[in-house]
């Protein structure tokens, strides 16, 4: 009881402390500082119509590489936790020793077959959603979207397929290969930028092309497509690991 009261007091303190800050926040009338520079010079610098993409892939390209690395580490942790073939060690606990006839808990291993409606729908929608994901990351430099979003859309298509077909398994080796290849190519393009253009992850070693066309903005679409493939295969692998072990 006293614990609950303490929690409420702590949360109320945080809320009361932060609320004046939040409420006193004035809306900016115009852009200032670095954002202004990005908006004014973004089109000229990198030729990408979507300025968010220009920031993610080029101005802050190193940060994005770091984010992709964080994603990779999280995925590696999941595979390390769930992917090992060994069964987990059951701890010797009192409740187990006393009640020996404890029923085996439902681990969700028993899977029902998907209904015909779900199966047909998934088979029909899977290629369309996949295509949509690819469209999102290929057009990342022109329209809202990009590698991260497109990759997540692709993973969602796979989730639909995995729900419909209980016996289906993705090929882990193939997924790992796509992931490793796209990740390595991403870094290689970054190094190529250091050699052919101004610095690491500079996309301007390819011609910038016509503003607003699909093949424009240097290597930005290439980099974003690689990120999309990496995120898509990574999250697909995560879903597969979670489902296999659960």
């Amino acid at each position: 009881m006293i614990k609950r009261l303490l929690i409420i007091v702590a949360l109320a303190t945080i809320a009361l402390g932060l609320f004046p800050l939040v409420w006193g926040m004035q809306e900016a009338r115009t852009l200032s500082g670095v954002a202004r520079y990005y908006v004014v010079n973004g089109a000229e610098d990198y030729g990408a119509a979507n300025l968010v993409t220009a920031v993610v892939v080029s101005y802050r390209g190193l940060d994005t590489l770091g984010e992709v690395a964080v994603l990779f580490v999280a995925t590696a942790g999941i595979v390390l936790l769930l992917g090992s073939a060994k069964e987990p060690v059951l701890l010797d606990r009192k409740s187990h020793a006393e009640g020996e006839s404890e029923p085996e808990p439902d681990m969700g291993t028993e899977r029902r077959e998907g209904s015909p409606l779900l199966k047909t729908g998934a088979a029909l929608l899977f290629p369309i959603i996949l295509l949509f994901g690819v469209y999102i990351f290929v057009n990342g430099h022109l329209t809202p979207g990009g590698g991260f979003q497109g990759g997540v859309v692709i993973a969602s298509a796979v989730v639909l397929l995995l729900m419909a077909n209980s016996e289906m398994h993705m090929k882990h080796g193939l997924l790992n290969m796509i992931e490793a290849l796209s990740g390595a190519t991403y870094v290689a393009i970054g190094l190529l930028g250091m050699w052919l253009a101004a610095g690491f992850l500079d996309p301007r070693f390819l011609p910038s092309g016509e503003f607003g066309a699909l093949f424009s903005a240097g290597a930005i679409p290439l980099i974003y497509s690689l990120i999309g493939m990496k995120v898509g295969s990574e999250l697909t692998g995560v879903m597969e690991s979670l489902r296999r072990k659960a």
């Binding site: 900016a28 954002a35 908006v39 300025l51 968010v52 920031v55 994005t64 991260f148």
Partner: peptide, 10 residues
């Protein structure tokens, strides 16, 4: 501002 959007996206 495109910078917070880019941060939140990742």
């Amino acid at each position: 501002d495109p910078v917070p959007s880019a941060l939140v996206l990742t």
